[in-house]
Design a protein around this nucleic acid. Structure first.
Lengths: 131, 131
DNA sequence: CAGTATCCGCAAGGATACTG
DNA sequence: CAGTATCCTTGCGGATACTG
């Protein structure tokens, strides 16, 4: 299953490993949601903000800048008036889509199980509180 | 590629969707690292803390409690002296391993590309600063 | 060993106002 | 429209001390 990789050049468990820095970035909720939102095609800033419910304009800008810097998102500004800006995944960004879709699919598939586990855990705790 | 799912019962883009809450949890750096660390087998608290470099005891405890509550990690305490506590993935936790391994694999595979993109982005910015 | 409890600094992140 | 700049609050997360 390739979960160990003791002979690899990089080890994500190491605090100073470059792979760790990358994981820190992509294991971020807004990053994941933006990637998913752009997976189906380019979007302008406003539409993107509307699609990713709950994101503030500040966090969206910040996330997009980070993804742009890492070469995963392309920013295209058209000199209309008012200005039009479109964001699109680069090939690098697209290569990440499968992985994040995996996360989303897992979330969808296990909502019920997790809800059950939470209820079991919480009732267990409150029962203990009565002892 | 199943990136849209307009007819699905849940939509992760919605702020109040249960799937969003789950994604918020698993799209977290410590969660991902703990899942990876336990993927190869159970670990005691101390060994786990050593393996996941950089995690504080507080964040590790917090992350483990969250995962335990969601039914993804099992906590077993043995009445030795001093006490021995072992953490292991549940079947539910194991079912998430493939997805997070995907993230790690992607990170490993694209370190160089991202480094290049960053240098390009940063030098581009500083050149613009001279205009 | 494996925690819990507490304090505290600092940065994430929201709200608002302003600009090309 | 798509930002940037600013202020300000919240809580993440580290450090430390204490317990079964």
């Amino acid at each position: 299953m390739d979960t160990k990789n003791p002979t690899e050049r990089y080890d994500v468990m190491r605090a100073d490993c470059p792979a760790r820095q990358i994981l820190d970035r992509i294991a971020d909720k807004w990053t994941v949601l933006v990637i998913l939102a752009l997976a189906t095609g380019p979007l302008r800033f406003g539409r993107l903000k509307a699609k990713v419910e709950g994101v503030s304009q500040k966090m969206l800008t910040q996330t997009l800048r980070g993804l742009e810097r890492d070469g995963m998102v392309d920013r295209a500004a058209y000199p209309t008036v008012p200005v039009t800006v479109e964001y699109a995944l680069t090939p690098l960004g697209h290569s990440l889509v499968d992985a994040v879709v995996g996360l989303r699919r897992w979330s969808h598939a296990h909502i019920d199980k997790i809800d059950q586990a939470r209820r079991r855990y919480d009732t267990g705790k409150s029962e203990n509180a009565n002892l």
